[in-house]
C-alpha cells in the first residue's frame, strides 16, 4: 500500500538543538546528566558545550513526504537505528529530511503485515551528514483498514 512511495522524500526542515528541549528530553528518559543539562559543565567538557542524548533526534521535524499518511491505530514501532558522525551540540541548527526507503508486505500468523522503512537524515548548514536514523514501522491489518490517518510529518 506504500510501495509507490519508495524513494519519495520531504523538503529539508531547519531544527535547533534547543537547550530547554534537551534538558526536558534528558529528564524524560531519567538521564539529567550535567553533560546534557549543566551549561558550566558543558563549557569545560571535551565538547566545550553541552550535547544532546543520542535518541534526541526523535524530537525533530523532518518535513512532510508527499502522499504518505500513517494510520493512527495498529502502527507498531518495530526497529530503530541511529548512526552518528558526532554528538549533537546545543544551539546548533540541524537540517532534517526524511525519505521512504522501503515497503514490503508479509503474511504472518496475526494476518497481513506491512513493513515501512523510513530514513531520517540530519545535516549541518554545510550539508555534512551528522546523523542518519532508520525507522521500521509495522502496519497491522487494523492499520491497513483504519480510516484515521496522521499526516506524514511524523517524528522519529
Amino acid at each position: 500500500m506504500y510501495k509507490h512511495l519508495i524513494g519519495k522524500q520531504s523538503e529539508k526542515v531547519e531544527n535547533q538543538v534547543e537547550r530547554g528541549a534537551v534538558a526536558a528530553f534528558a529528564r524524560s528518559i531519567g538521564d539529567p546528566h550535567p553533560l546534557y543539562v549543566d551549561k558550566e559543565y558543558g563549557k569545560y567538557s571535551k565538547y566545550q558545550n553541552n550535547i544532546a542524548p543520542p535518541t534526541f533526534p526523535r524530537t525533530f521535524s523532518y518535513g512532510t513526504i508527499p502522499g504518505l499518511h500513517l494510520p493512527v491505530a495498529g502502527l507498531i514501532h518495530g526497529e530503530q537505528t541511529f548512526e552518528y558522525k558526532r554528538p549533537l551540540l546545543i544551539g546548533e541548527e540541524i537540517y532534517c529530511h526524511s525519505k521512504v526507503e522501503n515497503y514490503r508486505e508479509k503474511r504472518a500468523a496475526s494476518g497481513h503485515l506491512g513493513f515501512l522503512t523510513l530514513i531520517n537524515i540530519g545535516e549541518d548548514m554545510r550539508e555534512n551528514n551528522i546523523f542518519t536514523s532508520k525507522v521500521v514501522l509495522v502496519l497491522t491489518e487494523q492499520a491497513r483498514e483504519g480510516e484515521d490517518y496522521y499526516d506524514s510529518n511524523h517524528r522519529a
Partner: peptide, 8 residues
C-alpha cells in the same frame, strides 16, 4: 555512540 540500533 556512533551507532545505536534496537528491535522492539
Amino acid at each position: 555512540i556512533q551507532s545505536f540500533s534496537t528491535r522492539f
